[in-house]
Simulated scan of single mutants.
Amino acid sequence: MKIGLFLQDTRLSIEEMNKNFDRVLKNAKKNNLDLLVFPEHFYCPDELELENLNYLNYGDDSSNANEIVDILRKYAKKANCPIIISRSDFNGFIYGLFISPFEEGIKYYGKHIATQISSFDLEDYKEVVNDIFYPVEYKGYNIGITICYDSNNLLFSKCYDDVDILINLTGGHVDYKKWYIYQRSRALENKCNYLCTMAYYRENAKMIHMYLVLMDMVKN
């Protein structure tokens, strides 16, 4: 499976980020990617609109989940492959989504720790937890999603049953060595491939717009 990890440079101007974002989607299509992955809190041209939408239902504030998915699905269509994204809604809940351009269904994951509103805060958590940790079934592989600090804890990745790939969506500003150890530990514990992508904040270093990861995996 060919997976692209978008390493986004947040130091650029809005105009430059828009151009880079469009270029990445076109490159994904040109290179026939199977999956394109964005970091937590990734920037996109619909930034201002998405910032004012709620993924969850907050009493008087109804959920805008369908509207959010419609906005993001157009990026999947332009890339001509499914995408995995993570953003914060208007009230601070951080969600992750697997969105395909080819079918209407989505896969949803909600962040648990180091967040303003946790999945643990959901009143119906006991009822939805199995859906949160149900892997994406795609091209014969089971793919699990975690967000940022959820990768620090064995519990969240082990909640997935029999995954081939775990993907962590991180926003950046983390210690590389520490993060490498977390991801490697989760890969060993789950006996699977583990990928992580994040935004790019470092100064005076080489900028890479997208990694292409070629994965030839043989199931046992």
Rank of each mutant, 00 (worst) to 15 (best):
K2E: 01
K2I: 06
K2F: 00
I3S: 04
I3A: 09
G4E: 04
F6Q: 00
D9L: 04
R11I: 02
I14E: 11
E16L: 12
E16K: 15
N18D: 15
K19N: 12
R23E: 11
R23M: 06
R23P: 00
V24D: 01
K26P: 02
K29P: 00
E40N: 13
F42E: 11
F42M: 13
C44N: 15
P45K: 14
P45V: 14
E47H: 15
E47L: 09
L48W: 02
L50Q: 03
Y55W: 15
Y55I: 10
D61H: 05
S62F: 09
S63K: 12
N66E: 08
L72D: 02
R73W: 00
K77F: 06
K77E: 15
K78A: 04
K78T: 11
C81Q: 11
R87G: 07
N91D: 12
G92I: 05
G92L: 11
I94Q: 10
Y95D: 08
G96W: 13
I99K: 09
F102Q: 05
Y108I: 14
Y109H: 08
G110I: 06
H112K: 04
H112A: 07
T115H: 06
S118C: 05
K126T: 11
K126I: 12
E127I: 10
N130E: 15
Y134D: 14
V136Q: 00
G140Y: 08
I143M: 03
T146K: 04
C148P: 01
D150K: 14
S151M: 10
N153R: 09
L154F: 10
K158H: 08
K158Y: 00
C159G: 01
C159A: 11
Y160K: 08
D161S: 13
D162G: 06
V163Q: 04
N168L: 09
G171Q: 08
V174A: 06
Y176E: 14
K177Q: 13
W179E: 13
I181M: 01
Q183S: 12
Q183M: 15
Q183H: 12
R184C: 02
L188C: 05
K191G: 05
C192E: 01
N193L: 12
C196P: 02
T197P: 00
N204Y: 13
N204G: 02
A205Y: 02
K206H: 09
K206S: 12
M207E: 14
I208C: 07
I208D: 05
M210C: 13
M210T: 05
L212A: 00
L212K: 11
V213C: 15
L214H: 10
M215A: 10
M215S: 12
D216G: 03
M217T: 07
V218A: 10
V218L: 10
K219G: 02
